[in-house]
């Protein structure tokens, strides 16, 4: 494709930073703040877009791993729902970000139901809690690395870049 996505994103950032922002009056703080955030989002998306499909695949694979670890201790009814969501996740179109996102949401709801333990809030066994916290740490680190360019993370300097993070996930 010509012009490609990287070039168009770079053009948009340049237009915002060199033309639009300087033209905005200093007292128009909302407009200035939002224009700067548009540039910030675009810069982040420029770094992310080529890895977005891979990122979603890694996220779904990790959630499936958690679901399998929770399965043995889940009640029969919750286990059936979880198995069905797992089957849907395994069958989803892995070339489509939208399809993977949908599978992630559906499987996430089934995992949530197990975490809450159904209507009687059955206790979660220690092994399930350990698996859950291990998964949650991987998930949080992945998301923090994905969005580290927002510079809001107090420990951003400890996070890997996107390529390293995805390579580690493999």
């Amino acid at each position: 494709m010509l012009p490609n996505i990287d070039l168009r994103i770079a053009n948009m950032i340049k237009a915002l930073e060199q033309v639009v922002l300087p033209a905005l009056p200093r007292d128009q703080r909302l407009a200035r703040d939002q224009a700067m955030l548009v540039a910030g989002h675009l810069r982040m998306m420029g770094e992310q877009w080529k890895s977005a499909l891979r990122y979603e695949q890694v996220a779904l694979d990790d959630l499936q791993g958690l679901a399998r670890q929770l399965l043995p201790a889940a009640s029969a009814l919750l286990a059936d729902d979880l198995k069905a969501a797992l089957a849907m996740a395994q069958a989803c179109d892995r070339a489509s970000v939208t399809a993977i996102e949908r599978a992630n949401i559906d499987l996430g709801h089934a995992v949530d139901a197990v975490i809450l333990g159904g209507t009687d809030h059955a206790p979660l066994p220690p092994a399930s809690i350990d698996a859950l916290l291990d998964y949650a740490l991987r998930h949080a680190r992945r998301e923090r690395s994905w969005f580290k360019a927002n510079r809001l993370d107090p420990d951003q300097n400890d996070l890997p870049d996107l390529e390293t993070m995805l390579a580690d996930a493999d």
């Binding site: 909302l30 703040d33 939002q34 955030l37 548009v38 910030g40 989002h41 982040m44 916290l133 949650a136 740490l137 998930h139 949080a140 680190r141 992945r142 998301e143 923090r144 969005f147 927002n150 809001l152 993370d153 107090p154």
Partner: peptide
């Protein structure tokens, strides 16, 4: 009125997930 700030702040949400762990 500032959806873009909400998504910007949302991108920091995982900081709290790791804190929870």
């Amino acid at each position: 009125h500032q959806d873009i700030i909400l998504t910007w702040l949302g991108s920091a949400g995982a900081v709290f997930l790791e804190q929870l762990v």
